[in-house]
Design a protein around this nucleic acid. Structure first.
Length: 403
RNA sequence: GGAGGGGUGGCCGAGCGGUCAAAGGCAGCAGACUGUAAAUCUGCCGACGUCAGUCUACGUUGGUUCGAAUCCAACCCCCUCCA
């Protein structure tokens, strides 16, 4: 259906939601050296699995000979994207933004090659140009091409206005600056394509339109579908918080477990989207039935963790999982809790982070949810006098070690 | 500017002087069943605790009362209608 290998791959792996001009993009992707970018906020010190869909897009572009640009929104984060928000975001300080930027940057080095060759990925910060914009020249050169009427029709703005929720002029300008980013990247780096989540469609199209009016015609856009889990939730949002990509925000073990616990119905889709495994291998894995599908989940967890955290981290997590779940031992990647023996179970549970409070620890003991080295413990007075594996439920384990 | 309505636990939402740590639902955690899945059923779901109780909580601050989420006052915020 597509002639370019790049689009063919994206389509086969489920990455495409909308394209602004499928034919033009197919042609552009067929020629070598397509340059494309995705923009990322710097609102947190790490991106999370919700951002993985577009990160994989950049990775696939590079695999097909294109040049990915990671645009850090150092400038736009000072404003805040009004999309999907009912209220204005709290403003981040410049120091917080640059710290976040530095932290986020590390994770991209796992997914993309910044080595400096022809197809080397590059990372840029829109603060580099947005900070220097002069208001009057900007309004004369670009403001006259931007239609307020159209901006008011954008979902991000319209929804706020319809609900009579406040929308500051500051936030209203977010899309203006994002549109301008595209033009700037087209000029600086010959960037032809902007990619993003489906919620970015409006902003992407604004950028393309602005480009057409200021001498950068033929810009293109591509969006990915919003990835939800089979039970309808936004992917990667757990009660414990987001599934962060940075190791200092979420241990490798938890990252591996996140993928290992994928719903049966999502396994094939996630394998295609979030791993590099060949498609025929994926179809074999997803055709597994019953308990066999666990093999596919392990393959998913290994591949996804290897990409983001490295092959060694994936192997270690897999070994820990085998030791912990299959052999009932304590794998080395399990979280450690340092305690002084003998220790009361209640204290051990809270120290290991398995219970949020002593009261909760007592309740869990009463429910029969607590085990030490596989033996159920129900008496809150029990004292533990040796290192071992403390478990809450069947999935959450910690290693008790001497302080 | 005027007239009404409302702000309750992570979210939604009942309560409208004591029996309220606050119904119900969602989310979450655990048990059973399983495959570290889903669905289902069951229990739990503010903190501390020697489980008797203590403390903190129903927008904020004061007040009335033996006793307030519930009544009063002021203030803050949100919504609807009128100008």
């Amino acid at each position: 259906m597509y002639r370019s290998a790049f689009l063919e791959t994206l389509a086969a792996r489920g990455h495409i939601h909308q394209l602004t001009d499928a034919e033009a993009l197919d042609a552009a992707a067929g020629a070598p050296g397509l340059v494309a970018y995705v923009g990322y906020d710097c609102t947190a010190p790490s991106l999370h699995v919700g951002n993985l869909a577009t990160i994989m897009l950049l990775r696939r572009l590079q695999q097909h000979g294109g040049r990915p640009i990671v645009l850090m929104g150092g400038g736009t984060t000072k404003i805040g994207d009004p999309s999907g928000k009912d209220v204005q975001r709290q403003m981040l300080s410049e120091e917080a933004i640059s710290a976040n930027k530095a932290s986020i940057r590390t994770v991209f080095e796992r997914f993309l090659d910044f080595g400096g060759g022809a197809g080397s990925a590059i990372m840029v910060d829109n603060a580099d140009w947005l900070d220097r914009i002069e208001l009057i020249p900007f309004l004369r050169d670009y403001g006259r091409h931007l239609s307020v009427n159209r901006m008011l029709a954008q979902d991000s703005v319209r929804l706020r206005l319809e609900r009579e929720q406040p929308l500051s002029f500051l936030e209203f300008n977010y899309m203006v600056l994002q549109a301008y980013d595209f033009v700037e990247l087209a000029r600086r780096h010959g960037c032809r394509l902007q990619m993003g989540g489906s919620d970015q469609w409006g902003n992407i199209v604004q950028g393309i339109d602005l480009g057409r009016r200021v001498g950068c015609p033929d810009l293109l856009g591509l969006t990915t579908p919003l990835i939800t889990t089979a039970d309808g939730a936004k992917m990667g949002k757990t009660a414990a918080g987001a599934v962060w990509l940075n190791p200092d925000q979420l241990p490798d073990w938890d990252y591996w477990q996140f993928w290992r616990n994928t719903d049966d119905r999502d396994v094939g889709r996630f394998l295609r989207l979030f791993t590099d495994l060949p498609l025929d291998e994926i179809s074999r894995l997803e055709s597994l039935e019953g308990a066999e599908i666990n093999a596919a989940k392990i393959a998913l967890a290994n591949a996804a963790t290897a990409l983001c955290r490295g092959a060694a981290a994936a192997a270690r997590a897999e070994a820990t999982a085998r030791a912990t779940f299959a052999e009932g031992a304590a794998g080395e990647a399990l979280p450690e809790a340092r305690v002084g023996f003998p220790v009361g179970v209640v204290d051990a549970l809270t120290a290991a982070g398995l219970a949020a409070s002593r009261g909760e620890a007592r309740r869990k003991l009463a429910e029969g949810a607590v085990r030490f080295d596989g033996e159920v413990v129900t008496d809150p007075e029990t004292r533990i006098d040796r290192p071992g594996r403390l478990s809450l439920g069947r999935k959450r384990h910690a290693r008790l070690v001497a302080a």
